[in-house]
Design a protein around this nucleic acid. Structure first.
Lengths: 159, 159
DNA sequence: GCTAATCCTGTCGGGTCAGTAGGATTAATG
DNA sequence: CATTAATCCTACTGACCCGACAGGATTAGC
């Protein structure tokens, strides 16, 4: 069902590392961070991460400086980047049904209402992932929807 | 991210077909439905569906009668079967992070709050899929959480 | 005993995923 | 101006999973 891929997981963690570097040293202009340092910070495979960060750049979420002293920078403030943006950048749409977008599935007979359920499923995902910014995630300062979900008693249990 | 697999999609549709047969002819005892008829009703590949329905049986969601005039029956009323139950039966856990359950992921440094986000993501999924029964799905009689999600203006739009 | 069904095992091609290899290009710095 | 440190690009691989099919063993109603 939901499988948070290594790509997405690594991408979010790299972005978190970048965000940290961004507001860390007071008011200085942040210096570009190399893939090597990002990989070290979160213990990720360097070459694989390199490919992932390239996707983030193509999606416009980070800017790159080439050459010595080069590296990557957030292209927007961390409170204006949703986690959903990151995941879409590296893994495509948040939800698919057998390769189709949820809203253009169609079914015969008894299953006529099924598309609505898939759409609702996607909407639920969006509420969490597009409702949480990189900045909120880093600080654990959750938006209200997420807080409500986490308050659920069995949220941390298997099922 | 979320990929509703063919297995899950087909499984839900087969269960819907079964549910329809169940309350259709008034108060008669429902007769077992063969895989062939289920496949026809929803236009699904017979042999593949056979394997899927076998999973549903092992999970206890349907009961089987072997031999001539055999087939499958819902093992509980359709309002006591959650869509989430069906999906778990054929595809395993609703959410995983690189093969791990969301609640036992762990991260170094800046990503310390990430597990909570994955857990919230799963909780959001559960709210929709465990909150909707097979019966509600068939009738399009959505629970309040789903209605709220579908009311969202861009719920049916791409992103 | 025929027939219609479940049940089981095995196979298969293609696709995706995580990760690696190797090198071309770019730019700061001494 | 050469060295060095970085991005960038293309290609590859090995493993695994997914959708689907084949063939037959078993069961039970008529």
């Amino acid at each position: 069902m939901v499988d948070i891929s290594a790509r997405s997981d690594y991408a979010v963690r790299a972005m978190l590392a970048l965000a940290a570097d961004h507001d860390d040293p007071g008011a200085e202009k942040p210096a570009p961070v190399s893939v090597d340092r990002l990989a070290q910070a979160q213990d990720l495979p360097v070459k694989f991460l390199e490919a992932i960060v390239a996707d983030l750049r193509r999606a416009g979420l980070v800017a790159s400086r080439r050459g010595a002293r080069g590296g990557y920078l957030l292209s927007r403030p961390a409170d204006q980047i949703a986690v959903g943006d990151i995941i879409r950048a590296v893994d495509g749409p948040l939800a698919e049904v057998r390769g189709l977008r949820p809203h253009d599935t169609a079914y015969p007979g008894e299953a006529e209402h099924l598309p609505a359920l898939w759409v609702a499923t996607r909407a639920a995902l969006r509420a969490v992932l597009d409702g949480t910014s990189l900045d909120q995630l880093r600080r654990g300062a959750w938006p209200t929807e997420v807080t409500a979900l986490l308050r659920q008693p069995d949220a941390w249990e298997s099922r």
